[in-house]
């Protein structure tokens, strides 16, 4: 494994709001093709961490290196240019465009044609957009208005958009939130397949432990801004502190998280 290059390395990342330490000296790294889950109770600092990684938020201190390049202080669009795709907890797409056009806009940006005033977007990278949509199983919906899509389909569309810049790293904030149980597992399986095939590193946060334990190679557990555990799914599952704070015990945990999923 040590032959695989480090894609992302985070050192001593911290952020506080007033007196609240949202993220406290968090360090971890991610290799290409690796799927890393970031879990923890609500308010643990997962989203703050995420927003700092893609430039939406600036850390108070710490370093973020993506393929050797320092990304602290860069804007989200600049981080994107370095090869980071992102999906959001609540999907962000372009509702007045068709599904295909949604992907085409991302391809336009990737091809640096944003200020092309006289070309035709309809024909721009049409096949490439179609391929990406096929990849996430949305090919049949290409000409549908995006605003009409069911929520699960929007999540898949977002994944296609996030793949448009041939990213080296995918950041997915609760990729399966708000989806039906079967859709969740399918979406994550799809993501894992794509990631392994293209050796994209994936960092995701998630509350559905079925999804996390089935697909993550490694898991980071965050509580009150600090990393309290890190390791393979087995190691994390067996960690008594994690069980106490987040997962709960045995059957109790299983029953509870199924009912409360998506909350």
């Amino acid at each position: 494994m040590s032959m695989v290059p480090t894609l992302l390395s985070v050192e001593n990342l911290s952020k506080s709001y007033g007196g609240v330490h949202a993220v406290r000296s968090v360090s971890f790294s991610l290799r290409s093709g690796e799927i890393l889950a970031l879990i923890g109770p609500n308010g643990a600092g997962k989203s703050t961490c995420f927003d700092m990684l893609n430039g939406q938020n600036t850390p108070d201190s710490g370093r973020i290196k993506l393929l050797g390049e320092d990304t602290v202080g860069k804007k989200p669009r600049q981080v994107w240019r370095l090869g980071v795709g992102r999906t959001f907890q609540i999907t962000a797409t372009f509702p007045t465009m068709t599904v295909r056009e949604n992907v085409q806009v991302a391809l336009v940006s990737y091809g640096r044609q944003l200020f092309n005033l006289f070309g035709s977007t309809a024909n721009y990278a049409r096949d490439e957009a179609g391929r990406l949509l096929d990849l996430v199983g949305m090919g049949a919906y290409a000409e549908r208005p995006c605003g009409e899509l069911a929520y699960g389909d929007l999540k898949r569309l977002e994944l296609a958009i996030a793949l448009a810049n041939q990213p080296k790293l995918l950041l997915m904030d609760e990729p399966t939130a708000g989806m039906a149980p079967r859709e969740r597992v399918e979406l994550m399986r799809l993501t894992a397949e794509i990631a392994r095939e293209k050796s994209i590193g994936v960092l995701f946060t998630e509350h559905d432990m079925d999804v996390v334990f089935e697909h993550a190679d490694r898991i980071l557990v965050l509580n009150r801004g600090s990393l309290i555990a890190e390791g393979t799914p087995e190691q994390v599952r067996g960690n008594p502190q994690v069980r106490a704070i987040y997962l709960g015990e045995g059957l109790v945990y299983d029953a509870r998280h199924r009912e409360g999923a998506g909350a």
């Binding site: 372009f94 806009v105 944003l114 200020f115 092309n116």
Partner: peptide, 28 residues
């Protein structure tokens, strides 16, 4: 009308539809 359907027109509509998403796909 040509500009509306040009790549620039789509970029503009993208910023109108979702600033968050357009920034996340590299649009200034």
């Amino acid at each position: 009308r040509v500009i509306v359907f040009s790549p620039f027109g789509f970029a503009l509509r993208a910023t109108r539809d979702s600033l968050l998403r357009s920034e996340a796909i590299g649009i200034n």
